[in-house]
Design a protein around this nucleic acid. Sequence first.
RNA 1: GCGCCCGUAGCUCAGUGGAUAGAGCGUCAGGUUGCGGACCUGAAGGUCGUGGGUUCGAGUCCCGCCGGGCGCGCCA
Length: 582
Amino acid sequence: MHDDGTGLTPLRGRARDAIAAAWVRAVAAGTLPPAPTGTDLPPVEVERPANPEHGDLATGLAMKLARPYRMPPLRIAEALAAELAREAGAPGSPIASAAVAPPGFLNLRLSDAALEGLVAGVLASPGAWGRVAAPTPRRVNVEFVSANPTGPLHIGNARGAFVGDLLCRVLEAAGHEVTREYYFNDFGAQVRNLGASVVAIRRGTEIPDDGYRGAYVHDLAAEIPGDVWAAAEAAGGDASGAVAADDGGAGGRDAAWLVGAWASERVRAGIEASLATLGVRFDVWKSEGSLYREGWVERAVARLRESGHLFEEDGALWFRSTDYGDDKDRVVRKSNGDFTYFGSDIGYVVEKFGRGFDELVYIWGADHHGTVARLRNAAAAMGFDREAVQMLLIAWVRFVRDGVEVSMSKRAGEFITLDELLAEIGVDAARWFFAARGHTSGIDFDIELAKRQSNENPVYYVQYAHARIASILRKARDAGLEPAAGVAPGSLAAATPEGALARALARLPEVVEDAAAARETQGVTAFATDLATQFHAFYRDARVVDPAEPERSRSRLALVRATQVTLARALGLLGISAPASM
RNA sequence: GCGCCCGUAGCUCAGUGGAUAGAGCGUCAGGUUGCGGACCUGAAGGUCGUGGGUUCGAGUCCCGCCGGGCGCGCCA
């Protein structure tokens, strides 16, 4: 990674390159020995020291080289520092100085020119700031939510929706091509079950024991279009009795089936609308039925058979998942001829890779962890790269209202819908809440507490900084002052308010890289909070709009404007609005 | 029983093997005649569940134990 001339190249990457080059030169100069053969050498890693006195960037490379080189780490660090010092200050070098510190750290200072160039780059191309070029761009399919359309989304679905969308935004910013995908069951027993419930209500008969009961089911019953109902009545069928548990959707097209098909599509459209209010939109809505109609399941079965990992037993068709370390084999097609969910899933894998994706990401609830191994194993058995099939298991949110757990059951009709949650706490606060937490930790979400504390959500702190900057820029314009194209040379010294703010905002691309690599977004919220804090501190210490000092004002306005752009980009990564006033 | 995840400040949670473990909220004490007080400064508050191990270095990696969640169907 060398500077591309826009000024937007991540400084951390440039520093990494400079250290790697210094290493090569030190070997050439003889101050470091050639790499020992047969030893794995550590990669060059650069971090931001927690203590600013240690510099802007640091590497522990010398300590990691001590063993293979059989040299004291301080001596290695000194050899690297000497090479870095040789080119420090040269045009184009991001490094101003390098210092060693026990037990072997190599601490770096960024050059003024690199920081100044970066601020100018942000102002010149704000739309490109925060987008990084992936070393190997990938086409990624991210499948998430995928709740069956048998009822409205409830707040238990919220976390997956937000985590999935956040991941997509981060992957896109990191240079990957992302498709957002929603997979839904459109013909199985549950859809039929929904239909039976709606039919029962319409007829005034009793709802089946395992039917659906929420208010929305009654709404559906009242809204059945005339032609659908006429067809259902003509088809007949006993919809009041229990649906055969293992019917698997293979039953006839009776009233329950016909009404269920209509109702589930109606519910699906409602889900799509709810997700849109969250700022979550999907590129592809994929129905399970289409995987069969288009032959993908049969193709998957054929691939497994060719690879020799399929067998028949007790009249069923099995995938020998134990060949890949699973603890048991898995049924693909039941003895009654119906495929299992697993059968649909492997067909879907073939279909997705057929569309040219490099990676398939699944965002599942934690209760699905038992199905991870079998699907990855099947992908491997079908000749795909097991590593290209990845599952993110989202830990449960335990919803609580004033200390009492709120149960979520679609069939019992007991749940808080997503729409209700958002009406209570707002999309921006909800997005921040989930973005700031790792997806593997369980969360207690007290709705009353969230309502009470929504004004104290850090999201408003960040938005406030953005709005405050907008106000400053308005005030400056009224005073006849516009931001300069960049900051004044020499104005970003480390110990100054300007220097601290510039160093904070410069991290954005690194934050994007790290978030995409880790598939986590907490780094983005932490970054946004830190940048807002740095801005408020700067605002306290440095007067921005001062008609008596127009040049200094224009320089500071440039830095403030770059900060605003960075805050807006970070909020955009989170799908959160960046208001000009609030 | 086996498998996966979790255990960090009073609460909710961060913490790519690095230097003195952080943030928000809560508690306590302060600050603005200069551009938005939804702001700022400071204080108190921690055996990182526990015991070993690896490492120059462990909240982070490995093993055991304790506690909690989830899963272990020809269900969906």
